[in-house]
Design a protein around this nucleic acid. Structure first.
Length: 904
RNA sequence: GGGCACUUAGCUCAGAGGUAGAGCGCCUGUCUUACACACAGGUGGUCGGCGGUUCGAUCCCGUCAGUGCCCACCA
């Protein structure tokens, strides 16, 4: 016996273990079936499952389970990401709480700690993925810092370097003063900051009392100014071009240059140029051959190292006191000092966008350093073409615009990070200098190979004793993530997996990593594999709370998927997510929604209990083609259509349509109508009809279990076994339902439609008249055709039960006094309710029905009265309207007759 | 500043050039032997404004307004 309710907490983990143990998740490289591949977007190894994960992984699992049931050789590749900065940050914080710091312990000891942390907490997210029901091929799990994946990283680095697509350059980078590392453009986010615009007076050389006023939001950078730029056509400053100002505090003599970068509309029209601390200024500096002194160190503190060996530093005491000051502190002190010197013209409040490190949350500092860059422009071109030509298609399509807009204006990708946790750059420094003044470098996959290169240049003897210094930097985490679609399959080895599972079928992810990850996988995939990494990119929205607010810790509206699973079961959460996942829409998730959908899980469970109570179990011998009763043919036909719609929806990633459609069929069609129609038959005499209804009940229930399995795997799997459709944990590999051949489905549909309409009308009238269900009455048919009477006869038991009727028969003689009446097709159905109903209310009800029909008729009359419509609209549309008009008029006539009968 | 999306019932959202829909909420009945996490019925919308195309526009085009998001030189 099934328990009164499904118990997810007890059942789900048991089933998951069963699946995993039986190898149900495993792909089969030797299979003859067509592969279907999804690469998991690898979560941070030390992370834990949040609601956004629940969304993306539910969708992926739904696809994988569905394709697996379709007989595809499904691979959902699992794995985790080392997440350089994020992980290093976590471990550093942990160490700090123990009074330790990484610099104190050194690189090796620190990395030891990170690996320990990974060993300790790295299993969390994979455990949680299991709890969600994610059917990943676990034995294939990879980690971005596995030996294999690291080999792929080295191979790619060396290859790109050899191709000239990866190189060192000295230019401004986005420097994060907290983590003290370069970060890429993507790791920078603009935040609106309320600051000031300080107007500073720079004394014009040789003209005492004359000042050139510059406006700046960053007065502290003035120490590094090496020019002032004005627009070449700006009349106000024309005479100053070519002359100099004397930089206050520092005393440096700096030129006034003409450059179109200067915008006469902005500020004062004269802009100070600090090439080492501003991206635009850097370009101006390059154009004018300006010196580029850095005045801030790695931590964003004032450094005088490059400031003034060649200048007078006429405010030497102030500057020396300033050395080592934090940039924001320095800002205050410099402003105060300039004010003292009457060099501060004015201060205006100014709100502007300031780039911040996305992890550290502090303003980034442009900093002049040597870093490794990837020539992204070269790699981007084929990636753009692949999407233009449809080799990879985004769903929804509009995300392609986003993809294009970024790639078409892509900047060199800074891939080196001054961190310890990550793939250390495979480059070793030699004794010499290169032409550009950079240290001589040997790039190779191993130190031996690098040494061989060194030997080739300097001789064996030298190479034998030379102490190599390896580049201490590591690579951007996204460098290894970009290789994920093939590195996980064993590349650069020529494995069967690489041949079989690359390219993947679909990448499922959020729009927030289109640039970080999708675009880079496209670039690397095409470059190294010669083919796009995936055919489709399905982009889903964000999970928000029920009011549409972004979830955040500070708002306190964060939902924990594991808590929801604990409270309502994984099936309920998964179903909720799927049914809300419309294309291009955020998922607005509330606890109530999950609770509501738990009711659906329960509904399926209860349908099963009903079958069980009637002794109905799986019966493989039932043949839908032999079905002859209208009820069986009708539900088989409805199931066929439900399956076809579900399949079509999943094919176009309409998870919402799939989930809602499957739910509608299960609940409204199978439970509310089919099972109700089945009850009288099941309670009746044994015989062919009863046997067929029993057969079709189990058959369609089996279809429902399969239909729902991708989205609610647990409850369906449990019932699959309990009802004998298959052995334990085998639904996961059962075949996706195929349409059954149904004998004359149209006739069955037409017949059942009539029964449903009749019962619906009768229920509606009774309910509106407030007739209690305990009162049962005969249904008297007036004007019914012989066919209708025959149908009424055939369905008498269902009509009695669901329509609260005692009998159904043709009206003979005059209608009784005090009837409620409804019109169903050609017939008027009378319910003699003289004792119970209020005639006035019945009149009002009929009048309302009549008004509806009347309005409908008028609308169509007007349309048909329009000569243009009749002449120009397609004939079938005109004909359809004529038919509808006729039907509306006929209904009105019947309602008029009904009204006449109850006229007071 | 550039771009994308959205605006349909109280709420969350489907929708098709030709009869406006679902779930939730609300109201009314019902503990009808699978299910009150249920059953039955009902209320509720000039489909954001204004133009245009069309026999016909909620749908296509233009425009305006509002909302959200992404990108973009910290004067």
């Amino acid at each position: 016996m099934l328990d009164k309710q499904f118990d997810p907490a007890a059942t789900e983990p048991r089933l998951y273990e069963g699946w995993e143990r039986s190898g149900a998740f495993a792909c089969d490289p030797a299979s003859a079936a067509a592969p279907f591949t999804i690469m998991i977007p690898p979560p941070n190894v030390t992370g834990s499952l949040h609601i956004g994960h629940a969304l993306t992984f539910t969708l992926q699992d739904t696809l994988i389970r569905w394709r697996r049931m379709q007989g595809r050789d499904a691979l959902w590749q699992p794995g985790t990401d080392h997440a350089g900065i994020a992980t290093q940050m976590v471990v550093e914080r942990l160490l700090a709480s123990q009074g330790q710091d990484r610099r104190g312990m050194g690189r090796e000891a620190f990395l030891q700690h990170v690996w320990e942390w990974k060993a300790q907490s790295g299993g969390t997210i994979t455990r949680q993925l299991r709890r969600l029901g994610a059917s990943l091929d676990w034995p294939r799990e990879r980690f971005t810092m596995d030996e294999g994946l690291s080999a792929a990283v080295r191979k790619v680095f060396v290859t790109l370097h050899g191709q000239g697509l990866l190189y060192r350059d000295r230019r401004l980078v986005n420097w994060d003063p907290v983590f003290q590392t370069a970060i890429s453009d993507l790791e920078v986010e603009s935040r609106e900051v309320k600051g000031n615009l300080w107007h500073l007076r720079y004394p014009v050389e040789g003209e005492p009392g004359r000042f050139l006023v510059v406006a700046t939001t960053r007065p502290e950078t003035m120490l590094g100014d090496t020019a002032v730029a004005v627009h070449p056509e700006d009349e106000r400053y024309r005479d100053l071009v070519g002359r100099h100002v004397v930089l206050p505090l520092v005393g440096r003599r700096i030129p006034i240059v003409a450059d179109t970068y200067s915008d006469p509309e902005k500020g004062t029209g004269a802009v100070k140029i600090t090439p080492a601390h501003d991206f635009n200024d850097f370009e101006v500096g390059r154009r004018h051959g300006l010196p580029m002194p850095s005045i801030l160190d790695a931590e964003g503190r004032i450094s005088l190292a490059e400031i003034g060996s060649d200048v007078s530093q006429h405010d030497r005491a102030f500057l020396e006191a300033l050395a080592g000051a934090d940039r924001f502190d320095a800002r205050k002190r410099i402003v105060a000092r300039l004010e003292e010197l009457e060099l501060l013209e004015k201060v205006e409040p100014h709100t502007h966008q300031v780039p911040h490190g996305d992890r550290s949350g502090v303003p980034i500092e442009p900093r002049l350093t040597v870093q490794w860059y990837v020539n992204a422009e070269k790699l981007a071109a084929p990636a753009i073409r692949a999407v233009e030509t449809g080799q990879t298609v985004f769903v929804p399509k509009q995300w392609e615009n986003t993809f294009f807009s970024w790639l078409r204006d892509i900047q060199p990708w800074c891939v080196s990070r001054q961190l310890w946790w990550g793939h250390q750059i495979p480059a070793w420094y030699g004794p010499g200098l290169e032409e550009n003044g950079f240290r001589e470098v040997f790039v190779a996959e191993t130190e031996e190979e690098a040494r061989a290169l060194l030997a080739a240049k300097y001789g064996e003897d030298f190479a034998k004793t030379y102490e190599f210094e390896r580049d201490p930097d590591v690579l951007d985490t996204w460098f290894s993530s970009a290789l994920w679609p093939f590195s996980t399959l064993g590349w650069p080895e020529k494995t069967p997996e690489v041949a079989r599972y690359y390219p993947g079928d679909v990448l499922v992810t959020g729009f927030d990593i289109i640039f970080f990850w999708v675009a880079r996988m496209m670039m690397m995939g095409i470059h190294f594999m010669g083919e796009v990494p995936f055919r489709h990119v399905y982009i889903h929205g964000l999970v928000r709370d029920e009011r549409g607010q972004k979830m955040s810790k500070s708002k306190g509206n964060v939902m924990d998927p594991l808590e929801l699973i604990a409270d309502y079961g994984a099936d309920a959460l998964r179903f909720t997510i799927c049914s809300l996942a419309g294309p291009g829409r955020d998922v607005k998730l509330g606890r109530k929604r999950v609770e509501d959908n738990r009711a659906f899980v329960t509904k399926v469970w209860n349908a099963a209990r009903f079958l069980e109570m009637n002794g109905i179990a799986a019966d493989a011998d039932f043949d839908p083609r032999q079905a002859r009763t209208p009820l069986a043919r009708w539900i088989l036909d409805a199931a066929n259509r439900a399956v076809a719609e579900a399949t079509a929806s999943l094919e176009i990633y309409r998870f919402d349509e799939y989930a809602q459609g499957a739910q509608r069929f299960t609940w409204n069609t199978y439970c509310d109508w089919f099972l109700e129609f089945a009850k009288p038959v099941l309670n009746g005499r044994d015989g062919a009809e009863k046997a067929e209804v029993r057969g079709v009940a189990q058959h369609v229930f089996g279809t429902i279990l399969r239909l729902l399995h991708p989205v609610m795997p647990y409850v369906t799997e449990e019932l699959w076994h309990r009802f004998g459709y298959g052995a334990e944990c085998t639904l996961i590999r059962a075949a996706w339902p195929a349409p059954a051949e149904v004998h004359d489905a149209d006739a069955a549909r037409e017949e059942l439609d009539w029964v449903v309409r009749l019962i619906g009308e009768v229920r509606g009238a009774r309910s509106e008249m407030n007739v209690p269900p305990s009162v049962t009455v005969p249904l008297l048919l007036q004007g019914a055709s012989p066919r209708t009477l025959a149908r009424a006869e055939a369905w008498i038991e269902a009509i009695r039960r669901l329509g609260r009727a005692t009998e159904v028969r043709a009206l003979d003689g005059a209608p009784p006094r005090g009837v409620a009446q409804v019109v169903v097709g050609e017939a008027t159905v009378m319910l003699p309710l003289a004792e119970v109903i209020d005639l006035g209310a019945e009149r009002a009800r009929l009048a309302k029905e009549r008004a509806k029909a009347d309005a409908e008729a008028r609308k169509i009359e007007q349309k048909l009265g329009n000569a243009d419509f009749v002449a120009r609209a397609p004939e079938e549309v005109v004909e359809e309207n004529r038919e509808r008009l006729e039907a509306a008029r006929a209904e009105m006539a019947r309602l008029d007759a009904a009204l006449a009968r109850v006229a007071g």
